[in-house]
Amino acid sequence: MATITLNAVKKTYGKTEVIHGVDLDVADGELIVIVGPSGCGKSTLLRMVAGLETITAGEISIAGRKVNDLEPHERDIAMVFQNYALYPHMSVRKNLAYGLKIAKIPTDEINRRVAKAAKMLQLDDYLDRKPRQLSGGQRQRVAMGRAIVREPAAFLFDEPLSNLDAKLRVQMRMEIKALQRELGVTSLYVTHDQVEAMTMADRVVVMNAGIAEQIGPPLEVYRNPASLFVAGFIGSPPMNFINPALLSDIAPAEAETLGIRPEHCALTTAEAGRLSGTVAFCEALGADTLVHVRMADGSLLIVRSDGDPIETGEAVGVSLETPEILGFDSDGRAIRS
């Protein structure tokens, strides 16, 4: 159990800087999810914490100890990889015990820890199987188990669920979260899936092009995105962006773009709405329907409606919950009122 501190961490490959100075304080027992599109540097950042990539500048501390120049196994961390990286020729038991064996931990202590982890992850019956005899979800559990038995100061997860099917992903998401709570181990979790970020994180770090755009609790990030990028990335369907000219009476003077979430829009008659357009297409999700409305200026606006799908081409009006409208300036920064 420990804190993790990143202080102006930078990474360059040759002359290209891929991480432009990231500051982050992870509190003891906290689960931080680093989320961002592919190539934003989130995995690189995690691998720097793990010690698999060198740190070009800045400082990383784990449990108050500077770890910049320590080997991965000296950093007291455990990592769960995207493709699990289980040793294919070793049984589950040996996979779990391998790190402990190298660390020269006494055999009965190893057995105790392996048994405990196996019980926690419901792997008792599979201890003598080889990884290839297990299903995807079970392999994922073994990878988790390998992290747990080390009893590390921190867990590092590198997109651990992206190789699982959608249903299993939802289940494992909750299991990992519950396990992390139970063990109280400080965790960094990298994903490109914003649903994972929203549901699992104590705090979210939204990364874009090597910069941490916003750090905060998931709902805070959702409700008050710090930038246009965060607003567009977090939330599915994404936030609607509207040209301020269409709403000139309520738009802040310096606003370049206005944003509103689909759930804060509602369909109404063509005359009554703040905005109007024609229905481009509908996505019926069951509980609600996403109506894509083609505006007068050609842009699309998504409305989350609880009604049934509407005929394409029908003229509709859209009413907006005006207090929920956000303004963004010419740099893409949110305008705070």
Binding site: L52, E71, P72, H73, M79, N83, G99
Partner: peptide
């Protein structure tokens, strides 16, 4: 990742 897992395992 196999190498990296081994490095983390020490």
């Amino acid at each position: 990742e196999m190498v990296e897992a081994a490095r983390i395992d020490g």
